[in-house]
């Protein structure tokens, strides 16, 4: 089975691609999906160490995607990356098993730090 380090799920395509570019530059392997359904499809087929997930998706809420991913792949760590996250969203996501909850705009160093810490 093919392994990737990271799956990025965000409806803003250019944003998702840009983030993938930046992570790739740092030696990580990335896949990009723009909606919830295709994201779950690929998670079912492929194992990701990390999923970076936006909460607002055109077809469903990120929270649903989060619970599906945790159901399919309990070992996959999910970082919620959203522009409009409220305190309530944060608590709900952490309760559902999200590893971290990060607001846009993103500080890339922080993202790397979150993932590096876990590796170590």
């Amino acid at each position: 089975m093919k392994r990737y380090d990271i799956l990025i799920v965000d409806d803003e395509q250019r944003y998702a691609n840009m983030l993938a570019n930046r992570l790739t530059l740092r030696g990580l392997t990335c896949q990009v999906r723009y909606d919830g359904r295709t994201a779950i499809d690929i998670v079912e087929k492929v194992f990701f160490a990390w999923v970076i997930l936006d909460l607002r998706l055109p077809d469903c809420y990120g929270v649903e995607v989060l619970s599906r991913i945790k159901a399919i792949r309990p070992d996959t760590r999910v970082i919620i990356l959203t522009g409009h996250g409220t305190e309530q969203d944060r608590r709900q996501c952490l309760a559902l098993g999200a590893h971290a909850f990060v607001n846009k705009p993103l500080d890339i160093k922080r993202m790397i730090a979150i993932m590096g810490q876990d590796k170590a």
Binding site: E12, Y15, L19, R22, G83, L106, I108
Partner: peptide, 18 residues
């Protein structure tokens, strides 16, 4: 405005990375 700003942030960040 937050979404475009995030995109600006990433794009600028990527260029800097490059």
């Amino acid at each position: 405005i937050n979404n475009p700003l995030a995109l600006i942030n990433e794009t600028a960040g990527y260029i800097k990375d490059l």
